[in-house]
Design a protein around this nucleic acid. Structure first.
Length: 99
DNA sequence: ACTGAGCGC
């Protein structure tokens, strides 16, 4: 499951993000998006976890939690690619729904 | 102290 992490501390890097999520499950990959022109973090990143169940738990646990001194926001990642729609929503994404 | 709202190559 791809996970989107926002509001990261600019001190947080790929490893720090991975460390945060691995305590809840196996992380397949983790990456903090950096600005290629300045080399600084853009303040958000992505984590891919092997187990969806663990990913959901990690999202619930780490969302609005504190990492490296900043409160982060963890969500399901939107599919990379076209964001503007036009086309319509096919059954909707599984995300956003919370009970 | 730069920098705070958001989806990557």
């Amino acid at each position: 499951m791809n996970i989107f992490v926002a509001k990261l501390s600019f001190n947080t890097d790929d490893e720090g993000l991975r460390e945060a999520f691995e305590e809840f499950g196996s992380v397949d990959s983790a990456k903090v998006i950096m600005d290629n022109q300045t080399g600084r973090s853009k303040g958000f990143g992505f984590v891919e976890m092997e187990n969806d169940d663990e990913a959901l738990e990690a999202i619930q646990a780490l969302n609005e939690s504190e990492l490296d001194g900043r409160t982060i926001v963890v969500k399901k990642a939107e599919p990379r690619g076209e964001r503007s729609g036009g086309g319509g929503n096919r059954g909707g994404y599984g995300g956003g729904r919370r009970y």
